[in-house]
């Protein structure tokens, strides 16, 4: 596709550049050109709200809502109803059996329309109850596992790390396989003597992860370097000297954050005295979290503006090829 010559920054003559803003360039179809112009005019119409509320903005807003809703209805119909219900049930492909189970979602789907007839509007409760039941039933275990069990576990890891930091970390090998894995990783590390030490250390420590399963508070890199330097002991117990103050700080900060945050949400005791002080620290931690979220939100909003200007300067006005989503 010959798109290079139309961009002003790539040395397109002003006449050529200007002509292709108003007439599609070779390789660009009219529907793409019309689409770009409609999108550009609507973008500017929506930007006009920044000056003041006006009819052009309202017009663009209504077009957006209408077209988005229309698009969604078509997509739901096409992807959910036709492909997953109508075709498999009424028009199954050659060789495939009719899926009779689809009668259940079909009936439940039709029952949602009972809401429109007041005398039988009770019928809508059945599909709603089904949707709620399926949603809760499916999500409950996963939610508990992902948000409670795993998150609690990593918090406990930090507590164990703090607990063991003041003394030597002790690792008891649980099987010969663990011994072999450690020896293998250490040999590989010694044999390669890599130039990019930190990258290889990362790969080698990834190798010994199974040894640290369910005792991840033990520092993997220290363990590997210990085995490289001292070899494996006879009695299956490895004592590690480890003083990573930055990790200790992180673990302490994490633990204090979780503890004080939980105290802030504990309402059965009045927040006075010691309790008040701890909950204040909790508020402080929460404020830092909200601050980080707000920073990311600002970044997101600016990104949206950047996206629109990239479209206006690149795809619409052809000022700069690097901003065009088509040319890259």
């Amino acid at each position: 596709m010959e798109t290079q010559s139309i961009y002003l920054d790539q040395g397109a003559p002003v006449y050529t550049w200007l002509r292709h803003v108003f007439v599609p360039a070779p390789g660009f179809s009219w529907d793409m050109w019309i689409g770009n112009w409609v999108a550009a005019v609507l973008t500017l119409a929506l930007f006009s709200y920044l000056v003041c509320d006006n009819r052009i903005f309202k017009f663009a807003e209504h077009i957006f809502i209408g077209s988005a809703t229309g698009y969604l209805i078509v997509r739901y119909n096409e992807d959910a109803i036709v492909k997953q219900l109508w075709t498999p049930f009424f028009n199954p492909p050659q060789g495939a059996a009719r899926d009779w189970w689809l009668i259940i979602p079909m009936v439940l789907g039709l029952m949602t329309f009972m809401k429109l007839i007041p005398s039988v509007s009770w019928g809508v409760r059945w599909p709603l109850a089904f949707f709620a039941g399926v949603g809760i039933g499916t999500g409950m275990v996963g939610y508990f596992q992902a948000n409670i069990v795993e998150q609690t576990y990593v918090t406990i890891l930090d507590v164990r790390y703090i607990d063991e930091f003041h003394q030597d970390f002790t690792l008891k090998l649980r099987s010969d396989d663990e011994r072999k894995l450690l020896a293998q990783a250490a040999d590989e590390y010694k044999a390669k003597r890599p130039a990019d030490r930190s990258k290889f250390l990362k790969l080698a420590t990834a190798m010994i992860r199974p040894v640290l399963e369910r005792r991840e508070w033990i520092p993997a890199e220290t363990l590997l370097l210990h085995v490289v330097e001292h070899g494996l002991p006879e009695d299956d117990t490895i004592l590690l000297k480890h003083r990573d103050w930055s990790r200790l700080f992180n673990s302490l900060f994490m633990w204090i954050g979780v503890f004080t945050g939980l105290v802030y949400f504990f309402f059965s005791v009045e927040h006075r005295g010691l309790m008040g002080g701890v909950s204040r620290v909790g508020i402080g931690i929460l404020m830092i979290t909200f601050g980080a979220s707000f920073g990311y939100t600002v970044m997101a909003r600016i990104s949206l503006l950047i996206g629109r200007l990239q479209f206006l300067f690149g795809d619409w006005l052809h000022l700069k090829s690097g901003l065009s989503s088509i040319s890259m």
Binding site: F131, T138, G139
Partner: peptide
């Protein structure tokens, strides 16, 4: 697009 039984986890 896959709608599933309901949107989200299912």
């Amino acid at each position: 697009y896959f709608h599933g039984p309901t949107e989200g986890d299912p």
